[in-house]
């Protein structure tokens, strides 16, 4: 039987009692490249953060390869938003990519030579090997994104969660990244990508998750990328949800 890389049931998240995601049920099949699209504030990043427990869920559950996230964490790779870290931090490119190996090392394990070789291979894959010794503040936006991607590759995971990997990168990097994602998919990996550009979403992904505080639709791109469903995601019908969320917030104060 095929494993289900990711399953959520009634996943609900609230920041300071203000709901941002309502009861998301989703079952992602293996070996798919999935785009998560929706308007600003739809909870796209929150969804993948809640899956990994980076933000606490207020309700529902998540299963990764049939187990809790804590047990499946070793099989999950993550690319956070580029702006989420301080790029003046005193580390070089190699240090960052090696962090991808930390999950496999256990509490007291040391970084071995084999880990370094894997990190180097991953850097090479994104074309950043010549920059291995570079301090990270001396990188362009596209290069920073490639470093994060290399770090995720170094995790050697089966499920990848990526938060806006195409923001602020040049066209060449974007093409290189999508090429790499397709290659991963061909090797049977499952990849979820938070994406904000609708026209490219249609061509990049096998499946789409339309999200606006609720899961509006999830399915093969051809079936989901319809006028009606997009209207439902981006149109005004769901604004009542966020209005109610604000009321909840006011009541609680």
């Amino acid at each position: 039987m095929q494993e289900i890389p990711l399953e959520t049931h009634d996943l609900t998240v609230a920041y300071d009692k203000r709901p941002v995601l309502y009861g998301v049920d989703v079952q992602v099949p293996e070996g798919k490249l999935v785009g998560i699209v929706g308007p600003n504030g739809a909870g796209k990043s929150t969804l993948i953060k809640a899956i990994m427990g980076i933000v606490p869920a207020t309700g529902g559950w998540v299963k990764v390869f049939g187990d809790s996230f804590a047990k499946g964490a070793k099989r999950v790779g993550y690319v956070p938003q580029r702006e989420s870290v301080d790029w003046d931090f005193p580390v070089n490119v190699m240090d960052v990519v090696l962090m991808g190996r930390y999950g496999k090392l256990g509490l007291m394990g040391r970084v071995r030579k084999s880990d370094r070789e894997i990190a180097e291979a991953c850097l090479d894959k994104v074309g950043m090997l010549p920059y291995a010794k570079r301090q990270i503040s001396n990188l362009s936006g596209g290069q920073q994104q490639r470093v994060f991607l290399a770090r995720a590759l170094a995790q050697e995971s089966d499920l990848y969660l990526m938060d806006e990997p195409f923001v602020g990168v040049d066209a060449a990097t974007e093409a290189a990244i999508i090429e790499l994602l397709r290659e991963l998919k061909d090797r049977g990996k499952t990849i979820l990508v938070v994406h904000h550009d609708l026209p490219t979403a249609q061509t990049y992904f096998d499946m789409l998750m339309l999200l606006n505080m609720r899961l509006v639709a999830f399915g093969p791109t051809k079936e989901v990328f319809t006028q009606e469903l997009l209207q439902k995601t981006y149109g005004g019908r769901l604004t009542i949800l966020s209005e109610v969320a604000n009321t909840v917030l006011k009541e609680s104060k």
Binding site: K49, M52, G53, I54, F69, A70, A73, K74, V76, Y78, P80, S84, V85, D86, F89, V91, D95, V96, M99, Y102, G103, L105, L107, M108, V111, R151, L161
Partner: peptide, 22 residues
């Protein structure tokens, strides 16, 4: 010395540290 890696990744990128299950 013992937990240098954990302190490092936690200081640089706390979200990523959590995603590793640390």
């Amino acid at each position: 010395l013992l937990f240098y890696r954990q302190f490092l990744v936690g200081s640089f990128d706390i979200g990523f540290a959590r995603s590793l299950g640390l």
